[in-house]
Every structure is written in structure tokens, then in C-alpha cells.
Design a protein around this nucleic acid. Structure first.
Lengths: 349, 349
DNA sequence: CTGGACATCGCAATCGATTGCATTAAAGTA
DNA sequence: TACTTTAATGCAATCGATTGCGATGTCCAG
């Protein structure tokens, strides 16, 4: 074990209380003593035991981020942003990675035993059991879900509908006859991307039954690659919108291997604005989500609830927005205006 | 605050000690009592306070990973791998991100107050002060440096020399007259990549003064892009080896914008084997480092030192190996054999 | 009926830091 | 000089869980 306060005090021929007060800068200690204490503490490299301090003061142990750490890189990017923000505000961040969303409730339960100051759940879908919820309330631990829906929790949501709407309009207005949506989520799920696509079709008077969906095995580079290869064996493709940038790059490669050119033959749009998309060949038109802002909001949400535990649950929303690059360009100003034209209905949601 | 042991005991009309023993399965408690205790604990959702427990038992608080979370994605990938491995063995992982290597000593010092079971330093170059070292010894906290050199510490090293040697040979044997090494590290630093390149030049009887270096502003996509653009204004390029894959993709784009083809006009090799490299156009020949293995080794290194604190400091090495893809292909079997020919001198280091 | 063996359980100290209150010493005032 | 005020420090309780040891009760054998 390390040096304890008592030992330090004994060496100085003082009591532990005096040393404690001297180190924490409390008034009522002789300046000379404070100096003497600080000097020896520095020299001996005394570091207070945070467990004991936390136990006594009742303060928690910082922020815990529970995250799904699988393929989509954007999850990791959000976790990283949460790490930075969380360190700023809570000083200390623990990351818990889950293999499967099913483990969420158990993980929260275990984490609660560590008396964290707050919990942020990143991209893990799932619900919490009643006993876990009760314990959260009892301990007054705020829990914020970022980019995922957990009932009865504060949440930070990234609104994908508008960005997707614009992306789909871009494809349609560029002349794509059969834009395809690549996804590995169940197609009957209330996916915001899908809603955006539907809205885009409707806004242009197109039959929504023309929306074509390509199911991917995984939301990864390979998943996109293989889905596109498979799709090309069955039908002609002139435009595609993918669930994320990894799949988009995979699809891009599949197209190139078949000799199809992007954007001349096929327009391609991704999602997430991962760093590599700007330097791909061609660079990827994609829908950017504000990662840092969302992380800041999540941490701020924790702070707000700690200050006012009784406030009603809230949701902070951030819009993902279309970033036009080479893989699906905007050739004319007229086209640009048409793509970014916003219907009232979408603005309210 | 949550439910405490004492409260639970009072509800059961028992003493805290009995409840504690019942829950931890110690002998000497009536089976009926154990059952009653466990039932109520379950129902009320009792979770022991890990701070108090850790304080009493003297056990630490899991693993702390200190990492530089800046541009190169490979850092984040290693952190992720450490997270998974650390959770497996220590149950609990805290991540501390540093803005600058200069903050390392202070960060370790702060972390020590949390009595962690072990510390892993990921990719942060720097040294520790004597007082910090003393405290590490006093507390018996193992500290392992992964992919970075900290004097007098266990370490896990990724040997880049062999992979780089092979990469440079591939460029030279493919007929590159002026291979360029893109890097943003000081050129006089004892960089393993540079040593590998020098060895490759020597192995083929080439004058090492022909080694050309391109200094990059940053080891990022844009850094590589701009360095390549700048290089092309001053001289002809027919082959390049970049410090990491991000820079390589940036350089690739710069080449393409100028109309140069890869690999026909320019051979390009990256480093890290980031996921996107496999699906780029062309896919990137790169040097892959074993991320998961290194993370496993780091955690195992902590375990070993906890078991045997007196063992001499050790270094576990993992070799990065060349992965040939399209951006610098191996056209013939003879070429393949020549590239992968290993000199004795390199095998020993 | 009594003593011992054994099964159960509670008391109290402990981990290390913090903090309200009491205590002592020093300084100031009449 | 005596008494009050103020500054500086120490004592002891506390946070919540754990654990050695002692206390109580039960049961069976002698």
C-alpha cells in the first residue's frame, strides 16, 4: 500500500486532521504548517486514496460510459468524444464495452455498485429492468442514452431523418431510377433513415413502393461489398444510399471491380462522415453527424440532472446534415436548391 | 445513496456481519438464513458499495489505460483492444486520455490515488519522475508500456523494423528509383521504420544517401495529402512508404488528382492495416501490426508482474508484417521470394 | 441433569480520509 | 494581572463493507 495520511501526519508530528486540512487548503491552519505539510507530501509523493475519500465524502467515481464496441467506427468515435468531455467534467471516465445489447441491464447493475456520478449509454439498444431503475432513482445516478432509445431516460438523439431525406432527394433529383438503400437492420424497424427516404420519395411524387432495399449481412466494409456484388447480379444499379460509410466504401469497391464508375454510372451516398470519406476516390458524399456536440450534450445532460433531479425527462436533438462530395455531386445550383429544400413536416420532427 | 448493508441487515433483523457473510457465501451461516438474505437482497436490488469494499479489502480498482487519443486511428484500435482484454481480466477499465505526452507523469500520479490494480500506457512517449516511480513501487502497481518506450518498465513492443524492411525492399525491387518515406516524426529520431528502410537499402547494395524523406505536418489524411502535393511540385515520385495508413490514403488522393496511377506510376505502401485499406481503390499494401495480440500481452504482462513483483523487467515483442495488396503488388514469384528474404541481422533484433 | 461440542450469530475493530466540535495556546484588552 | 478573543490543532465519529473473536443457543452424550 501507499503512504497514508496517518503516516504522513506522524512523520510531521501532527494529527491526520490537520494534515488533511492543510492539503485541501482549508482555513484555520497556520501558513507555516501548510507549507511544511505540502512540502513533505510533495517530497514523499503522497497521493490520497480516492476510495477512502469517495467513501467519506459520498462523491461518486466519475462517469461511466457503456458502449457497444463493434464494427461501426462511429461508435468508437462517439466513445472517444465522451471520454474527452467526461474527463473535463467528471475527471474520471470508465468505459464498459458490451458484446451484446442483451447485457445492458446487468452491466448497469454492476456499474451502480461503483457509485458512479453518472452513466452514459452509447448506441446500446435495450431496456432496463424495474429493479435497476429503482436503484438508479435511489442513488440519484443520472443516466443518459446517446443515439439510442431507452424508455424513461434523458437522451441525446441524432436526427437522421432530415439528412437522409436530403440524400435520397439528391439521388432522385440526379436522375437515379432505382436508388437502393443498403442496411443490415430489420427493414420493418422504425429506422429514421428509412423514414427520411420515404419522405423524399413522397416529396417528389414518387411511388414509395419503388424504394428498393438491399439487406447486408453486417454493417461493415465487407458487408457493403458483398451486398453490392450480390445486388449487381440481379439488377441494374444507378444509385445507392448506405447505412454507414464503411458499407459505402465496400460497395464502392464492388462497383469499381465490375467496371462501374462513381458517380458517372452510380451515385453513392454514405452516412457518418468518417475521416477517410473525404480522401477516398471518389470522395464520398455522406451525412455527417455531430459527434462532439452530441457528446458534450450528453455530459451536460448528466450535469443538469445532477443539479435538478426532479426535472422532466428531456431529449436533446442534433441534426445530421448532408455533405456533398464527389460520389454524388450537385452539378447545378438549381439542383442544390432542390435538394436542400425543406418541407415543413420534417422540420418539426 | 443506495441501500446499505446495515439497512438491509436491520430489515432482516440481523447484524451486518451475518448478512455480509451470507451474501459472500462464507460458511457458518444457517442455510435458511442465507436464503432469506439473498432473497431480500435480490428483491431490494442491493448492490454492495465497491468503494467501501475496496477500501476494506485493499483490492484495487481495475485497470487504467492511459492513452494518447489523437489522429492515428491505430491508437484508438489498441485502446479498444485493451478495453476488451482489461475487462476480461480486471473487470473494470478506466481510460485516461492525454492531450500531450508531457502530461504523462502527472496523469500517472493522479491515477495512483485510485489504487488501480495495474496501469497500461498506450502510445504515450515520455518518462516518469522519480517520485512517481517510487510510489509505483510502494504500491506495487504494475505499469506496462505498449508500443512506446518508458525506461525501467515492462513493455510490449511492436517491432516495425522487419515489416518496414520488407516494404522498402518491395518498393526497390519493383523498380522504384526514388522511394520516399513520409513521416511527421523528427527524422533524426531512432525510428524503427527508418532503420528498416536503411537495412533494406543496404541489403540491396543501394546507397542509403538516396533515401528521401518527406516531412508531413501531421500524421493524418490531410497531412499525407498535402505532403504528397508538395513533393510532386519539386520532384518526380515513383514510390512511397508512409508512416501510417491515413497518410497513405491522403497521398493516394493527391497522386490521383494529378493523374498519376497507383500502382502503375507510383507504388504506395502504408502502415497499420486499418480496416479501410482492404477496400480502397486500389487496396493498400500495408504493414499490419497485431493489435489484439499486443493488448493481450500487455494485460498478461500486468498479471505476471502482480504474481511475481520481483521478476526482472521484460519486453514482449510482436512483429508487424507486410500485407501485399494492390497499391504495391508482387507480380512474380521471384519478386515475392526476394522481398520476403530475411537477413539474419534483422531476425535477432 | 449437566457438561461439552457444534452450529449460528453479533460485537467491535479496521481500511483511509474527512469534518464537527472541543481543546489548547497565543495574542490582545482593560 | 486577569480575562476575553482568536488562531491553531487534536479528538473522535463517520462513510460502508469485511472479519477475527467472543457470545449465545441448541443438541446430544454421559
Amino acid at each position: 500500500m501507499g503512504l497514508t495520511l496517518k503516516e504522513l501526519a506522524h512523520t510531521l508530528d501532527l494529527s491526520a486532521s490537520t494534515v488533511s486540512r492543510a492539503l485541501s487548503g482549508q482555513p484555520g491552519i497556520a501558513p507555516k504548517t501548510v507549507e511544511r505539510v505540502k512540502a513533505l507530501a510533495q517530497e514523499l509523493g503522497y497521493t490520497p486514496d480516492s476510495r477512502a475519500r469517495a467513501l467519506r465524502t459520498g462523491q461518486g467515481e466519475g462517469l461511466v460510459v457503456i458502449s457497444l464496441f463493434t464494427a461501426p467506427t462511429i461508435y468508437a468515435m462517439r466513445t472517444q468524444a465522451l471520454l474527452v468531455e467526461g474527463q473535463n467534467y467528471f475527471g474520471r471516465v470508465q468505459v464498459v464495452t458490451l458484446e451484446s445489447p442483451a447485457a445492458l441491464d446487468l452491466a448497469v447493475c454492476r456499474v451502480l455498485g461503483q457509485n458512479p456520478q453518472a452513466i452514459v449509454i452509447n448506441a446500446v439498444n435495450g431496456d432496463l429492468s424495474n429493479s435497476t431503475r429503482r436503484e438508479l432513482r435511489q442513488r440519484g445516478v443520472p443516466i443518459v442514452a446517446i443515439d439510442t432509445g431507452i424508455p424513461e431516460c434523458d437522451s441525446v438523439r441524432i436526427d437522421r431523418q432530415l439528412g437522409t431525406y436530403q440524400a435520397a432527394r439528391l439521388l432522385l433529383l440526379s436522375g437515379c431510377k432505382h436508388p437502393v438503400f443498403f442496411s443490415n437492420t430489420p427493414l420493418d424497424s422504425p429506422d429514421a433513415r428509412l423514414r427520411g427516404i420515404i419522405a423524399a420519395f413522397q416529396s417528389l411524387g414518387r411511388d414509395t413502393r419503388d424504394i428498393r432495399l438491399a439487406a447486408c449481412q453486417a454493417s461493415s466494409l465487407r458487408g457493403g461489398y458483398e451486398a453490392m456484388r450480390h445486388l449487381m447480379t440481379t439488377s441494374a444499379v444507378d444509385g445507392a444510399f448506405c447505412y454507414n460509410d464503411e458499407m459505402t466504401l465496400g460497395a464502392l469497391r464492388a462497383l469499381a471491380e465490375t467496371g462501374l464508375r462513381v458517380p458517372d454510372d452510380v451515385r453513392l451516398i454514405g452516412f457518418d462522415n468518417l475521416p477517410f470519406t473525404e480522401f477516398c476516390l471518389p470522395s464520398l458524399t455522406t451525412v455527417a453527424q455531430p459527434v462532439e456536440e452530441a457528446a458534450q450534450a450528453a455530459v451536460d445532460c448528466c450535469r443538469a440532472r445532477l443539479e435538478n433531479p426532479e426535472a422532466p425527462m428531456g431529449t436533446r436533438r442534433f441534426a445530421a446534415r448532408l455533405l456533398v462530395r464527389e460520389s454524388a455531386p450537385l452539378e447545378t445550383q438549381a439542383l442544390r436548391e432542390a435538394v436542400f429544400h425543406l418541407p415543413e413536416s420534417l422540420l418539426s420532427d
